[in-house]
């Protein structure tokens, strides 16, 4: 059985690509054959985050148009066994992404025995995002603890409940889980940032994980290595927990409170 997962958000720049890379890598690390597809036609970035930008020859649109076959389009990761990347095209127009074309690619990946297909959605609630979500069996909604991101996530949830193939076929809503990223416990504690409880209450969906705001994410993208491979880092560990929960394990949420300050720090700290 292949599971197709869309990583989506509505709002741009909240961490979809970072999350897609981490989720796909984490699943493959656990031995699940996984492909991560960049649906952001014209603005491809997943290749950079995965560190395979220099190995891109063909892309999703090439495969759809038949310029290359699926095996030629897929890039096999050099660090993790069972991990494949299908990059987006950089230049071609977005209309090349037809639903029929995507379906053929997904069927091909199923035939190859992929267990998970992670779809990195572009921002927005227009065609690109709808295309990325259409065939999904499950969704990960990436949200920042900030008003516009939460509102957009709610709108995306509304769209997911009616515009996927499953919904159209009367199979109802696909399961959608919340991944709250760029979380800053200090700012939550001082009342300047929405808390994880606030966001959960408003969106009313299950929580997959909370990823702290972390320098490690920037380091990882600089290096072209998904942050989940940085085992020492808070964000890497938080993503690893999230992947475990994604697979049904129970793991306590970490990094929700700020590092304890001493009395001195509490009296005079910022």
């Amino acid at each position: 059985m292949t599971k197709i997962v869309v990583v989506t958000s509505g709002k741009g720049g909240v961490g979809k690509t970072t999350t897609s890379a981490a989720l796909a890598t984490g699943l493959a690390q656990r031995g699940h054959k996984t492909t991560v597809i960049d649906f952001d036609v014209g603005l491809r970035n997943l290749d950079l985050i995965m560190g395979c930008e220099r190995r891109v020859v063909y892309d999703l649109v090439n495969v759809i148009n038949g310029d290359a076959n699926l095996k030629q389009g897929l890039i096999k990761d050099k660090r993790v066994e069972d991990l494949y990347i299908l990059p987006a095209s950089q230049t071609r127009d977005k209309d090349a992404l037809t639903l029929e074309g995507i379906e053929k690619v997904l069927d091909g990946l199923k035939e190859m025995g992929m267990e998970y297909i992670i779809c990195d959605s572009p921002a927005g609630i227009e065609k690109g995002a709808l295309t990325a979500a259409y065939f999904a069996d499950e969704a990960v909604v990436v949200t920042n603890p900030e008003v516009s991101s939460v509102r957009d996530s709610d709108r995306i949830l509304g769209i997911l409940s009616s515009k996927t193939r499953k919904a159209e076929q009367g199979e109802g809503d696909i399961p959608a889980r919340l991944l709250l990223t760029r979380y800053s416990p200090e700012r939550v504690e001082s009342g300047q940032m929405l808390s994880v409880e606030d966001v959960k209450e408003i969106l009313a969906i299950d929580l997959l994980g909370v990823i702290p705001e972390s320098q490690a994410v920037l380091n990882a993208s600089n290096a072209g290595s998904p942050v989940i491979l940085d085992r020492e880092s808070d964000a890497g560990q938080a993503y690893d927990d999230s992947v475990a929960r994604f697979l049904g394990e129970t793991r306590e949420h970490r990094f929700l409170t700020s590092a304890k300050k001493g009395l001195f720090g509490r009296l005079f700290g910022g």
Binding site: E146, V147, V150, R151, V188, S190, G191, Q192, M193, L194, S195, D198, E201, I202
Partner: peptide
């Protein structure tokens, strides 16, 4: 606190 204002507006 600004976060509680944010929450109310969002709701």
């Amino acid at each position: 606190k600004s976060a509680s204002v944010a929450k109310e507006r969002l709701q």
